[in-house]
């Protein structure tokens, strides 16, 4: 597996989250399969994805999406392939090619 390889991911937004992402409900994107951390690299996890989304896709008000700990803000539900991300290892879940990640905001926004 080469470092330049990328994974095709489908991102879905609802409950007001789409407003932060250019008003798009679904984004098909490719994320790098590996992220470099210092000297070594590791397979992309949701933690990496969230940071990557914040820098590449997010259009406005990052404080409404990403929390101080690098996770999503509390009140945002994340589903990985239809299952609660808490069951999939939360931030440490390693993304697979073709994964569908859903972000639902349960907050009123602001």
């Amino acid at each position: 597996m080469t470092m330049s390889e990328s994974l095709a991911i489908e991102l879905q937004f609802s409950g007001g989250m789409e407003l932060l992402f250019d008003n798009k409900k679904t984004i098909h994107t490719k994320v790098p399969a590996h992220f470099r951390q210092g000297a070594d690299s590791h397979a992309v996890t949701i933690r990496d994805l969230i940071g990557w989304m914040a820098s590449h896709l997010l259009k406005e008000r990052p404080e409404l999406f990403i929390g101080p700990d690098g996770s999503v803000r509390s009140g945002i539900l994340v589903l990985v392939n239809g299952a609660d991300w808490e069951l999939e290892g939360e931030l440490e879940y390693e993304l697979q090619d073709g994964d569908e990640i859903v972000f639902i905001s349960t907050l009123h926004g602001g």
Partner: peptide, 11 residues
């Protein structure tokens, strides 16, 4: 809004 953040944060 602040209460919402407080409750969801705790939750």
């Amino acid at each position: 809004r602040l209460t919402e953040e407080f409750i969801t944060g705790l939750d």
